[in-house]
Design a binder for these strands. Sequence first.
DNA 1: AGTGTGAGTTCCCTCAGGGAACTTTGGAGG
DNA 2: CCTCCAAAGTTCCCTGAGGGAACTCACACT
Lengths: 151, 151
Amino acid sequence: MQRTRFGDMACSIARTMDVIGEPWSPLILRDVYVGIARFDQLQEDLGISRKVLAERLKWLLEQDVLERREYSAKPPRHEYALTPKGVELVELLMVMVRWGDRWTAGEAGPPVLYRHHACGRTARVELHCSECGEPMGPTDIDVLPGPGAAA
Amino acid sequence: MQRTRFGDMACSIARTMDVIGEPWSPLILRDVYVGIARFDQLQEDLGISRKVLAERLKWLLEQDVLERREYSAKPPRHEYALTPKGVELVELLMVMVRWGDRWTAGEAGPPVLYRHHACGRTARVELHCSECGEPMGPTDIDVLPGPGAAA
DNA sequence: AGTGTGAGTTCCCTCAGGGAACTTTGGAGG
DNA sequence: CCTCCAAAGTTCCCTGAGGGAACTCACACT
């Protein structure tokens, strides 16, 4: 990965990138989310080097984004699962999907669709304000220093 | 960056990571978004190697995420700005901020706050369904193959 | 005993990131 | 005119992370 450490910067983007900024991590989380959860399955599905996969998984376990479960003890077998912290990262993936669908899908259209349980319809995700519920994008806000800002 | 190419995968996450998956790119976009837009400013603010910064900027220009403007012709001086495609990536950054605030900010609290123009309040971003407007997260959907799915 | 499978490790090679010095273009100052 | 300065990169070298293939280890099946 990068040698410059992001984890100590006073920026939530940098700190998030410190956890999942290495390019394979989002794809690993995606696979675990959809049920591709074992080491060899991940390696084959992604085409990632086994070495790098082992490194990434160890890091994501340390970060409490994934957890490792034994699903068989007689022959010891494990699979990976998202923690609550990891499930919330999937929201980030949903927004990536939206951008990728819009700007990179081309003629073929989106590779996957989401069906929303609440309304049963095929839908995309949109950003809304936590306070008033109206849409809230980059051009709808002022950015102000918060309590954790650096000097 | 990674030698494995992500741009050809039938996955909008992978294709998005192909554009901004290198760890510095989101921070560059953040800086440009808040008005840190010139080469030397970016280099100093981020602490990135000048060499890598030049590479990233060139890539982001090629991807039509940034554009380069001449703000002075007499001494030729340039600055970078977000394209519409780039502005939509800032939505992704806003979701990263939300996750980073929640899970990595600790005692100090969030480094920045957003004030929503529409309601004037300090707010976070939330994910809602494009069809019914209700909240929509990773546990509220089924994932189905779409038209652009691979064989 | 021999084969198979899951889950990693180990080894080597190449290339990308970090850092510092150097270059280029065109003012500004004396 | 000559020198100095700033913006915006470029070049060079070094180290370390990613890729790939082979190897390991524990256990079950036949």
